[in-house]
């Protein structure tokens, strides 16, 4: 089985973020881009299925500019993906339909029985690439997928979808596009020798289809959340006094109750 996993470079959650000088986007200066969040689960799920289905291959795809996209593809190779393809863009693109179009053009010409993506990216959390890829490639797509299994007897995948109100159980034959919420296991960590080996593995680079850079959504303004106001300490000498002061603040200042 050919399994394609699409991953997105996202800012390392540990880096300090700030807005670009024009206030339209995140300032990429000094930001490290990593494989993270649901994308890690998608890679893990692909590798788990490969272990279960003989003769399978897991191929990683990332769309975006260098070096951030090839860098996370190296992480995929270190984790055990069989190959990596960089769909090269000159500029970072966040519009999910543009991302899906660029990846879909490449994936459409490859034999992919199963296309896995994280159900949403760690940074913008739009969750649109899986359904958009499904539509563009004319394949069934499902998001928020957990508990994905392959039944060789029936040649079908079975999986669950968690929605706000229920847990759905599904079965479907390939080809499929799935937005992963969780793999069976916590995403694995790459072993040191494999990390070093991955640095010497080739990464295929294909240009994004012309026109793919023109997004429909245009960022207007990028703001970081306002810093949280500091805690206020209540001075007191007895617990009763502390309670009385707290009640007064909640009633008169915060107006939590009349």
């Amino acid at each position: 089985m050919e399994i394609a996993v699409c991953v997105k470079p996202v800012p390392d959650p540990d880096t300090r973020l700030r807005a670009s000088p024009d206030q339209r986007t995140l300032d990429p200066e000094g930001v490290k881009y990593v494989l993270a969040g649901y994308d890690e689960s998608a890679v893990e799920q692909g590798l788990l299925l490969r272990e279960q289905i003989p003769g399978s291959a897991v191929r990683a795809f990332a769309f975006g500019p260098a070096p951030r996209a090839p860098e996370i593809l190296r992480s995929c190779l270190a984790l055990g993906c069989d190959s990596a393809t960089h769909v090269a863009a000159n500029e970072p693109v966040d519009d999910p339909l543009v991302v899906a179009a660029a990846l879909g053009t490449v994936l459409g010409s490859r034999p992919a029985d199963l296309i896995l993506v994280g159900k949403q990216a760690l940074d913008d959390e739009e969750g649109l690439v899986a359904p958009a890829l499904g539509a563009l490639l004319d394949r069934p797509s499902f998001s928020s997928v957990t508990d994905l299994r392959w039944s060789p007897d029936r040649a079908r995948f079975s999986f669950r979808r968690s929605t706000e109100v229920e847990v759905e159980r599904w079965e479907a034959p390939p080809p499929l596009v799935l937005g992963l919420q969780q793999a069976w296991n916590d995403p694995r960590t790459a072993k040191l020798p494999n990390v070093l080996k991955a640095r010497r593995m080739p990464i295929e680079s294909v240009p994004a289809a012309p026109g793919a850079a023109a997004g429909r959504s245009v960022p207007l303004r990028f703001d970081l959340p306002a810093p949280r106001a500091g805690a206020r300490m209540i001075e007191y000498s007895t617990p009763a006094e502390a309670a009385e002061r707290l009640v007064r603040i909640l009633r008169e200042e915060a107006k939590v109750f009349p």
Binding site: R74, A78, T189, A190, L192, V195, L196, R199
Partner: peptide, 15 residues
């Protein structure tokens, strides 16, 4: 080197 960055990153993540 990129190799050294990678192994430091792996150690940092584990640590």
């Amino acid at each position: 080197t990129p190799d050294q960055e990678s192994l430091r990153e792996l150690a940092r993540k584990f640590a």
